[in-house]
Design a protein around this nucleic acid. Structure first.
Length: 101
DNA sequence: GTTGAGCGTT
């Protein structure tokens, strides 16, 4: 289950976020969203947990929990898919791979 | 050295 985490302290790092969720279950990956141009944290991130039961428990326990003095927001993530369509494609190359500049 | 609602680069 992918989890959305908001209201994170700007100083928080991905490893910190991961350890927070690992206290409530197994964490496969943790991500802090940072601005591509400034490199600064956007203040929210995502955590992926393979066990849905532990994930739901972590959401229930960590939503509103205080981290570094800030009450964080934890919800089930949306919009980003893990399994894009990979079927019905043939290994044949493209004919129009010519590049015109 | 700054800020504070929301959903990420594959």
């Amino acid at each position: 289950m992918n989890i959305f985490v908001g209201s994170l302290p700007f100083k928080l790092q991905e490893a910190d976020l991961r350890e927070i969720f690992e206290e409530h279950g197994e964490v496969s990956s943790a991500k802090i969203i940072t601005d591509k141009f400034s490199g600064r944290s956007k203040g929210f991130g995502f955590v992926e947990m393979p066990n849905d039961t532990e994930a739901q428990s972590a959401i229930d326990e960590l939503n509103g929990a205080e981290v570094d003095g800030r009450a964080i927001v934890v919800n089930k993530a949306e919009q980003r898919k893990e399994s894009p369509r990979r079927d019905n494609y043939r290994s044949g190359g493209y004919q129009g791979n010519n590049r015109r500049y």
